[in-house]
Design a protein around this nucleic acid. Structure first.
Lengths: 230, 230
DNA sequence: CGTATAATTGATTCTTTTCAATGATTGTGG
DNA sequence: CCACAATCATTGAAAAGAATCAATTATACG
């Protein structure tokens, strides 16, 4: 962990994050409220049941939002990509965990001060509304996908989504990429067990749809067959 | 279907819906943009893949938000209760279906005009942000619940939730209520089949946890055993 | 290099789905 | 008002899928 003032000028999500909706003066005001923080892979940003006293915009890296039940099983509810916003603005207590999947950087704000900024700057409220609506769509899409498909299709859809996230071009997935998630995390996201995920990956490789390179490297040999099954 | 101007003065969700954040004059402006509409049970409010040109606040009744896949299987992603807001403000095309579960009443707005109102009235943007955040929490909670539990626990949790929704007191579920959903809809919401839902209801009744009255009447005999299994 | 952690693979068990048939409820037209 | 059709729900038997239990192999890390 490390922490320092914000440097918006060099921010890679400067024009995509919620704060992009603000004009220069407003953004400078907001910047004064926030602090830059680095997270190591696996480091906790927020914890379920802790007071919800902060919120953050992801600048670099990747986060997961997850719920862990009594017996320690983790269910991943969402992945957060750069420019994403995390933190529960209107809840006194956080209800989910937020953890860095890889080395990450965030702009961290006090929840109280950020809420005041939302009151002060209507454009910020609208930007957050837009972002929240997208997150809601994402959550519902994931629910529809997981609820409807069998293990192999879930794993395939996940690989495709990761390939697209790793790609520069908007509509074609990257031919090769590294998974940002462990098998346990993939299982938690897809509602499966580690063993089932592993078996499906093996089956996809055996069928010539993908090739694995080490534990996390994935090569999409036949991306078309990852989509809708024939 | 029927349609007429709004009558906010007698609106049952007057102080809970998004528009409650507005002052009298603003609310009157917004009211001029909207129309009251009645929906019969099963009637479609919005359809997936149709242009997203409207949005609405639910005044009375209940809605479902659902996705239907190629083979006609419906996956219910959310139930909407009075004061809930539906419609995709920032998407040009609707991605889910919105259908009335029971006879319902909504305030219907043009999406374009509502978006303009969101720009004009910061309080409306903030109210929608709050509501969207809650919906997001609801979607994630449902996902965590469905992903973590077996069939019986899902059905039990659903009955408990419906009992609480039907109750006047905030923390105790109603002892008796009618399900607003058919078996097919329950299955679609819980990620199960009709048969599995039916079997679990039979099992719960056999075990003395509930009693069924007709097809949709549910009596909670031992609500404690619907919660966390001992 | 050895140990700890993560991933794969196999065998078995359990749950849920699927297929199939029966029973109940609702609504309609005679 | 009743008979009938249509829809919805329940129940049973068989099959499929995924979880669990258990062991082995690969990878990362000190």
């Amino acid at each position: 962990m490390s922490s320092s003032p914000l440097a918006c000028a060099s921010c890679p999500v400067r024009d995509r994050a919620a704060c992009a909706a603000l004009d220069e003066g407003e953004r400078a005001d907001l910047a004064r409220l926030g602090r830059h923080r680095t997270l190591e892979a696996g480091e906790n940003l927020f914890a379920a049941d802790a007071p919800s006293d902060a919120c953050a915009t992801l600048v670099r890296g990747a986060l997961k939002i997850s719920a862990t039940d009594a017996d320690g099983t983790e269910r991943i509810l969402s992945l957060v990509h750069p420019a994403g916003f995390v933190g529960e603005l209107f809840a006194p207590v956080a209800r989910f965990d937020v953890v860095a999947l890889t080395k990450s950087e965030v702009c961290l704000f006090s929840r109280r001060e950020y809420e005041a900024a939302v009151e002060r700057y209507p454009a910020l409220a609208r930007a957050l509304l837009r972002r929240s609506s997208e997150d809601l769509f994402g959550a519902r899409s994931l629910m529809a996908m997981v609820g409807r498909h069998k293990a192999r299709e879930r794993v395939a859809a996940f690989l495709l989504a990761m390939g697209e996230a790793a790609s520069d071009s908007p509509c074609h997935p990257a031919a090769r990429f590294d998974l940002p998630l462990s098998r346990a995390e993939m299982a938690g996201l897809l509602g499966l067990t580690i063993e089932t995920v592993s078996r499906q990956l093996s089956a996809l490789e055996r069928d010539g749809v993908i090739r694995r390179h080490g534990l996390r490297g994935i090569e999409l040999v036949d991306a078309a067959r990852l989509g809708v099954p024939a």
